[in-house]
Amino acid sequence: MIHKWVSPYQLFLAPALTAIFTFFFIPVLAAFLISFTDFDIYGLADISTVRFVALDNYVKLFRDPLFWQALKNTFYFVLIAGPLNVGISLGAAVLLNSRLVKLKSLFRLNYFLPVITTLVAISIVWQFIYHPRFGILNYILHIVGIRPIDWLGDPVWAMPAIIIMAVWKNFGYNMIIFIAGLQNIPQSLYEAASIEGASSLQRFWYITLPMLAPTTLFVSIITMIGFFQLFTEPYIMTQGGPLNRTLSIVLYMYREGFQWWHIGYASSIAFVLFFIIFLFTLIQLKFQKDSK
């Protein structure tokens, strides 16, 4: 009988944990090791050509202007789109949570719809929306008296264009989490504040924001982790251009790893990405602790 030696919980855990261990943890470790080698297209054909090169990939990365460009672009994207996304989703949640609003679920659904849709399809739709001559965005801007913008063709506007689309696509997700957070704030707090004569702005500032702090932290962290992995939007809409202004870390990793087969080098890029995400999460957690 099998269960004389194996406990039932082990049988329940085995399939999932084996899969996760083999196809997640081992690859993470392997990537770490590969990042210290010169694994490339020759290594793909014959693994014995792969040599240990210590920190060479990381040194090279440090001196690679294209990597710095990708790093800069990704930070630009995360540091603008991230706060914008959190701010707008909080605003939308507060508005939709108002007692004055009718048809709440309809509005909620409306704002939420972009979240579940396929990013590739949405990027294609927006590429046409951003069309400098026929796009509906420039048409709307024209109605309000703004000159046409070559959204995806102008090095200055390409990243803002991607940011606008990313915020549109994602804010509904955080909005739902914020609405749940708002509903957990005891109504008595607001009633007490009203009796004391607090204005609605004061109530927002002194009750809503502090009570939502854990939710905001959670939302900020998951938004940031997701945004650091920017890939599909520039892959589809700009191919990293113009002038590499929308080249992201992951797009650069994809090109180096899966187009040029610089597997060792691309692994070091992936690890730098991991390190940045890790660092940012720590900073945000620390920030939260200090503000308490």
Partner: peptide, 21 residues
């Protein structure tokens, strides 16, 4: 397990590709 959720999937992609290949 929970704390490893912070590891971005892209980190695993190159070795996973080699494994599956």
């Amino acid at each position: 397990l929970l704390s490893s959720m912070i590891i971005p999937a892209q980190v695993t992609m190159l070795p996973l590709f080699l494994m599956l290949k």
